[in-house]
């Protein structure tokens, strides 16, 4: 019985070690791991993972500012929401959700040029978040449509599907 317990502890220890090691890697490794173990897939150019997996968790304060901004947006205070999001950006400028919400805010305000640019910016940061990318494309499609760029808009719409 005692031996079993020890081996469980061992497994746990190894898992923790493995987890820590993978975290450490994520800090600097901006180049995707090219030496994928064979079981993941054939390493032809097409299957090399394209995304940097930005798996770090969002700081609590950014989370809370995002909540505030959503509330402000909901209560019809888009400018206040934008200001709140700018504060969030000062803490983490690479958070694709913050940029997305900024785009949404500008869209609500009818500033479609900015809405489009901000959504495109969010897209450059959300390679690992397909659903957010779709939302951004929807914003872009709408912004383009409102600016009378119908053809571009329909292309964008396709990407949002």
């Amino acid at each position: 019985m005692r031996a079993v317990l020890t081996s469980t502890q061992w497994i746990f220890f190894v898992i923790v070690l493995f987890f820590t090691a993978s975290c450490a890697d994520h800090r600097v490794a901006s180049i995707p791991q090219t030496h994928l173990p064979p079981e993941i897939g054939t390493p032809s150019s097409k299957t090399i993972p394209a995304g940097y997996h930005h798996k770090k968790s969002r700081p609590g304060i950014v989370e809370s500012l995002i909540r505030t901004a959503r509330k402000e947006l909901h209560h019809g205070q888009p400018e206040a929401a934008f200001q709140t999001l700018e504060r969030a950006l000062n803490i983490d400028g690479q958070d694709s959700l913050v940029w997305h919400l900024m785009a949404k805010t500008r869209s609500v305000q009818g500033q479609y040029g900015q809405a489009e640019s901000l959504a495109r910016k969010s897209n450059t940061l959300s390679a690992d978040n397909a659903s957010l990318r779709k939302k951004n494309w929807r914003l872009i499609a709408n912004a383009l449509e409102k600016q009378g760029r119908i053809q571009e808009a329909s292309l964008a719409k396709q990407k949002s599907m």
Binding site: S30, P43, Y52, T124, A127
Partner: peptide, 30 residues
């Protein structure tokens, strides 16, 4: 940490030839 844009993809390249190669080749790089 440079976020990889949608219009970028990676290739495994042999730096000596500039051609694609296998990931198991020594010296290969992405």
């Amino acid at each position: 940490v440079l976020a990889v844009p949608e219009n970028v993809e990676w290739g495994i390249i042999d730096p000596a030839t500039g051609a694609r190669t296998d990931e198991n080749c020594s010296g290969a790089m992405s």
